[in-house]
Amino acid sequence: MKKRGKIIRVTTVPRSLGGLLQGQLKFMSQHYDVIGVSSREENTLEKVGKKEEIRVIPVEMTRKITPIKDLKAVYQLYKVFKKEKPDIVHSHTPKAGTLSMIAAKFAGIPHRLHTIAGLPLLEATGARRLLLDTVEKFTYGCATMIYPNSFGLNDIILENKYTSDKKLKVIANGSSNGIDTTHFDPSKYSLEDNAKLREELKIDREDFVYVFVGRFVKDKGINELITSFKKLNDEHQNTKLLLVGTYERELDPLLPETESEIDSNPNIISVGWQNDVRPFFAIADALTFPSYREGFPNVVMQAGAMGLPSIVTNINGCNEIITEGINGTIIPVKSSEALYDAMEKLLTDKKYCRQLSQKAREMICERYERKYVWNAILEEYRQL
């Protein structure tokens, strides 16, 4: 097949390139010459390139504000773009978006695309918020198209006047990469598999298991989650909270009392970072995801595809994947009381919980199947 042109996809770290966009780069390489650009990070980038079957180029980028390193990264990206002469530069993640959109504009790349999968700056205040707002507007100004990965995020961008609606477009029904429903499928895990893992984690057969998957940071609502679960667990001993992920203490630390409760409560089970989260969804009864902000959360789609009802906050992305009372329930942001009430209802109202669970997978398959999203992105490239 003759390829249509060259695309460079950029993320700040290779975990995003190989994780958030898993499979997509390999799919696009059937139609375009695709190059992945990201930080090297202990040969992780090379592994992503091998898995996705694309060429990769390392450019060191940081997730923090580091002016000197950022200028060096812009220059390195500029050199890559001038040498490779791609038709399209398409960036993901905040820092990669800013640096690569600036570099691509200076390099004269005709199509400069940036996907927005969340706005961390929304939680910032004061001078820091002003700085981040300015950077966001500058990034969008350098881009030729901006793709929010949810309709709610699209509205937030317009409300904050970061750019005009002419530059904005939500592809398909939202999401940056969709969900592989053949991979996230509860039928792949037998009753014996699930019983074995529960036994390893010291979870009794009659225990109701809430699961959280993601970074253990304040912005994910972990402080509220631990507060709510502690109260619930004091009243209902047959409950467990399963935490899958890692801390980011330097970027967004939890309250000391939250960490202490995680460490000391035997009914809170923290299993760390996991390359495959499916077994943990398979032994759980419900997802708890009380995040403060999201773009279009993969975790909620993954849990739904695994047949779990979800408790999510009323934020963009989450309130698009979840329909109240159909495949989950939606609660106010930063409310441990509302989270407690929702967790208790799923625990005590078995009929209600079962109804939500029955619709969970069906709704994900209908709206967010991965290849549907990939083809929509491919069509967007073709129209450019």
Score class of each variant (00 low, 15 high):
Thr227Met: 09
Gln30Glu: 15
Glu248Lys: 07
Phe229Pro: 10
Ile322Tyr: 05
Ile364Thr: 03
Glu235Arg: 13
Asn238Gly: 10
Tyr147Val: 12
Thr329Asp: 06
Val312Asp: 06
Ser38Arg: 10
Met101Pro: 09
Ile102Gly: 12
Tyr381Pro: 00
Phe216Gln: 08
His92Asp: 02
Ile326Pro: 01
Glu379His: 02
Phe281Tyr: 15
Ser16Pro: 05
Pro14Ile: 09
Arg128Asp: 07
Asn265Lys: 11
Phe184Gln: 00
Arg361Ser: 08
Thr115Ala: 13
Ser260Arg: 14
Leu17His: 06
Leu25Ser: 05
Asn275Trp: 14
Gly36Ile: 12
Ile88Phe: 11
Ile8Cys: 05
Ile102Met: 15
Ile68Leu: 12
Pro256Asp: 10
Phe229Glu: 05
Asn319Ile: 03
Ala107Tyr: 01
Ser336Arg: 03
Ser100Arg: 02
Ser164His: 07
Leu132Ile: 10
Gly126Ile: 04
Thr66Pro: 01
Thr313Gln: 02
Ile269Pro: 12
His90Gln: 08
Asn265Ala: 10
Ile283Met: 12
Phe138Met: 08
Lys137Trp: 09
Ala124Asn: 15
Glu337Thr: 07
Tyr210Pro: 01
Gln355Gly: 03
Thr288Phe: 07
Gly97Gln: 11
Gly174Ile: 12
Lys137Arg: 15
Ala338Asp: 12
Arg198Asn: 11
Lys95Glu: 05
Asn316Lys: 02
Thr313Ile: 08
Pro253Phe: 06
Gly23Asn: 10
Lys161Val: 04
Ile331Glu: 04
Arg4Lys: 13
Lys196Ala: 12
Lys64His: 09
Asp234Ala: 15
Ser228Glu: 03
Glu337Met: 03
Phe281Asn: 00
Leu121Gly: 07
Thr98Tyr: 15
Pro290Gly: 01
Leu339Gln: 01
Leu113Asn: 05
Leu130Ala: 13
Ile326Asp: 05
Pro290Val: 08
Lys51Arg: 13
Lys95Ser: 09
Asp185Arg: 08
Gly272Ile: 10
Gly118Leu: 06
Gly141Tyr: 13
Ser39Arg: 12
Thr93Arg: 09
Ala117Gly: 12
Val48Arg: 08
Leu99Asn: 02
Glu53Trp: 05
Val10Trp: 14
Tyr147Lys: 04
Glu261Arg: 07
Thr323Glu: 07
Lys167Ala: 00
Leu251Gln: 14
Pro332Tyr: 06
Lys359Tyr: 11
Leu45Phe: 09
Asp70Gln: 13
